[in-house]
Each structure stands twice: as structure tokens, then as C-alpha cells.
């Protein structure tokens, strides 16, 4: 069969990539173990009904008067000023930071797997197109 770009390259590439070993995506949020994902931003602290959450900036749905707003602003400033976590604890709203590959060791194996697939493809394509090489 005459080698063309379509038959010699695209088809093997697509065939290899759709193998079950290669078809698992590693979007960190999709493959992360439960302990890696902290979904409850209110974890670790409670609120009375109607009280705003100073740490996540989630406010109560009740309408506020002008005096209440000023009071809450002052309380919020005070809460942020004294906001502290134990060493090693994640801050609120930082899940995106820990969803990067450097912070997700559970996808490193998948990275190595994909690297080997791409390397095998590169070697395969190099030798598959070698015979028809023109000088």
C-alpha cells in the first residue's frame, strides 16, 4: 500500500490514542481522590442563621440596613485581620492552586504513561516513514 500522511501517520496515531490505556483523561478534578478535593468551604467553622461568612465572602440573603452594613464591614475587617490557619491547612478558595499537576502526585504516573505513548508513536512514525524517504 502506498504510504500517505493519512494512512501512515494519522490512523496509527488515532488508533494508539484511543486504546483504553491512553483514553483516561487526567483533568485533576476528575481523577483526584476525595481527600485531595476540599469542596466544603464552610468546613471547620459554623455560622448562626443569617450571619455572613467572613472567610468565604458568602453573605446572608437577608436585606441589611445601613448601620448593619457598616457593622458587618467592621467585623469583616476584624475577621480578616485575625484570620489564621494551622500550618499545612489550605486556605479557602485555593482548590485551583492545588489542582495543578505539580501538586497532584496521583497524576504523575499518567504523565509518564502518556510520555511513553508519545515516545513510542514518535519512534513508530520515524521507522514507518523511513522506507519512502527521499534524499
Amino acid at each position: 500500500m502506498r504510504w500517505t500522511f493519512a494512512t501512515g501517520t494519522i490512523i496509527p496515531v488515532f488508533a494508539l490514542l484511543v486504546l483504553s490505556a491512553c483514553s483516561t483523561d487526567y483533568d485533576v478534578t476528575e481523577v483526584a481522590p476525595a481527600e485531595h478535593l476540599v469542596t466544603d468551604e464552610h468546613a471547620g467553622h459554623d455560622h448562626a442563621p443569617g450571619e455572613p461568612c467572613y472567610e468565604t465572602d458568602i453573605e446572608s440573603e437577608q436585606p441589611l440596613t445601613g448601620e448593619e452594613t457598616t457593622s458587618i464591614d467592621e467585623e469583616r475587617e476584624a475577621a480578616h485581620a485575625g484570620h489564621a490557619h494551622d500550618e499545612g491547612d489550605r486556605n479557602h478558595g485555593t482548590q485551583w492552586f492545588f489542582n495543578q499537576p505539580w501538586a497532584a502526585p496521583f497524576i504523575w504516573g499518567k504523565l509518564v504513561r502518556d510520555s511513553l505513548v508519545f515516545l513510542a508513536l514518535a519512534v513508530g512514525i520515524f521507522f514507518a516513514t523511513r522506507k519512502r524517504s527521499k534524499r
Binding site: F5, T9, V13, L121, I125, F126, A128, T129
Partner: peptide, 8 residues
């Protein structure tokens, strides 16, 4: 991989 495609 990209270089091999370019070479092809």
C-alpha cells in the same frame, strides 16, 4: 512526537 509528524 511533533518532530516525527513533521518528518513524516
Amino acid at each position: 512526537f511533533m518532530l516525527s509528524l513533521a518528518l513524516a
